[in-house]
């Protein structure tokens, strides 16, 4: 879709990262490095929670940065820079997860319906962790439970939750990243949060020893 001149100007004026990316387009290596420094931790964190392994997540994050660099000459600011970057990240992560799924390397992926009740893996994982909701958890234990809870979400739910919770993207922006409608994202997030609550609620009722 062609991006109008006024849209490009608006995002250039509003988003400093867009301006940096325009410098990258003009072969400014310093600008690229600055963008990388700004986003690398967040991107690796996002990828880690998506694929479950940090080393793989770092590889994927590097792939994202490389794609950004390669796409620099075609870059036209049609959205916030972060939205554009997470769109690339979403594609990279989806491809990787498809590959992993074929090799059955991911074993903590929820069902497409997103209902925990239909996902015995989540219950198994929590049981295997020994973190039963019968006692107060300490911070590290709660962290582990949350990690498992997130891993029970399906790929799309996880992406939406992570973008919403940690990257503070609006429904509209998440919709753009994931190429869906905002209302679909609204439903997706609602289901994801219902799943999270279902897993976490028993532990949260006990409280955590923070």
């Amino acid at each position: 879709m062609a991006i109008s001149e006024s849209t490009a100007q608006r995002y250039t004026a509003q988003d400093p990262d867009v301006r940096l990316m325009l410098q990258v387009r003009d072969d400014d290596a310093g600008a690229f490095e600055e963008l990388m420094q700004r986003y690398q931790s967040r991107l690796v964190a996002l990828m880690t929670h998506l694929v479950g392994k940090q080393d793989l997540a770092e590889d994927l994050a590097q792939d994202v940065f490389l794609r950004i660099y390669r796409a620099r000459k075609r870059y036209v600011p049609g959205s916030k820079f972060s939205t554009w970057m997470y769109t690339i990240a979403n594609n990279v992560a989806s491809n990787a997860l498809r590959g992993l799924s074929r090799r059955k390397e991911v074993n903590l992926v929820g069902t497409e319906s997103g209902e925990l009740g239909g996902n015995p893996l989540a219950a198994k994982a929590l049981a295997a962790s020994g973190l039963m909701p019968t006692r107060q958890l300490d911070k590290a234990e709660l962290s582990e439970v949350v990690k498992i809870a997130v891993s029970t979400l399906n790929e799309r739910q996880r992406m939406a939750v992570l973008l919403n919770k940690f990257e503070h993207l609006s429904y509209e922006e998440i919709a753009e990243v994931m190429e869906q409608s905002p209302s679909a994202i609204k439903s997706l997030l609602s289901r994801a949060r219902a799943n999270l609550r279902e897993v976490l609620e028993p532990y949260l009722q006990q409280g955590a020893k923070l």
């Binding site: 964190a45 911070k139 709660l142 949350v146 990690k147 949060r193 999270l196 949260l204």
Partner: peptide
Amino acid sequence: AWSALDQLPMP
């Protein structure tokens, strides 16, 4: 539940 996500470990 949403706030509990703050406990997610950050690599």
